[in-house]
Amino acid sequence: MNKLTSLISGAILLFIYLLVQLLERQGILLAYHVQILSLCCINIILVVSLNLINGFTGQFSIGHAGFFAIGAYASAYLTVTWQVPFIFAIICGGILAGIAGLAVGLPALRLRGDYLAIATLGFGEIIRVIILNTDAVGGARGFSGIPKYTTFGLAYLTAIITVVVIRNFVNSDYGRACLAVREDEIAAESLGVNSTYFKVLAFTIGAFFAGAAGTLFSHYLQYMAPTPSQIGFVKSIDILIMLVLGGLGSITGSVIAAIVLTVIPELLRGFAEYRMIIYPILLILVMLYRPSGLLAGQEFSLASLAQLFKGAKAHGNHS
């Protein structure tokens, strides 16, 4: 059963990829469309990795753009200045962001909730100001001339890897320890869970993937601007909105929200103008009426779908 569902999932994912390739070759999907699809993948990576920190471990971080920026700039520097192979640049971007995550995770042990939120926001801004003052990456002018290495296929593959890795992590003992820290730190500690370690671990892994997303992003657009909306708090809050609307602690929710909230503003020109009025209202409404997000902790998968069918055929047939 288990093997079968993963096989089917794999087949569907491959099919989507081939479909996009085919439609692009046929000229039905334009470069612009493929760009949106690639941005969807990059945003999926960002939201799912933020979900690990905020949703599963309960450490409220709103500085995710900082890790994204580190990955984007560091890797671009590597490919532009040292002509490093791209795959190596992705990993380096991820690792550097991961190290930053480690550095942010360490103070996180002492801070709770809202304090941590502000500190991570501050961290993100410090990163931006540092980039703004670093001539080697273009400073305030922005970083241009980055080679276009990112393809849709690569972004797609990375997004799948991210989702699978984080899903498996969350469903292992490591992930359960993170959940325990989120639910009740004191109880977790008294059960032998080193809460410090798991907070830092979540930050490091989350930051790693955000860094990888940054790498893909900078090598897709070929230009990085040190503005709040690209690598600053506006970006962080964008990611946060996707996460919250999709549901803290739901990977499926993150994926869906990332896709929907990336595509809609592109499709509806008029919407873009009111986007920043509609999003916050949605955010407040969700908090008021469904604080755990639209897909509150629920996961959607082929297995659960199959379970549903099985349940319909024969009641209470436990595996």
Partner: peptide
């Protein structure tokens, strides 16, 4: 009582096997 209220009973117990 400090259970992990949002998790299943089984997960509450599995977490404690951590060490």
């Amino acid at each position: 009582i400090r259970l992990f209220n949002n998790l299943t009973v089984l997960d509450n117990l599995r977490i404690a096997y951590h060490q």
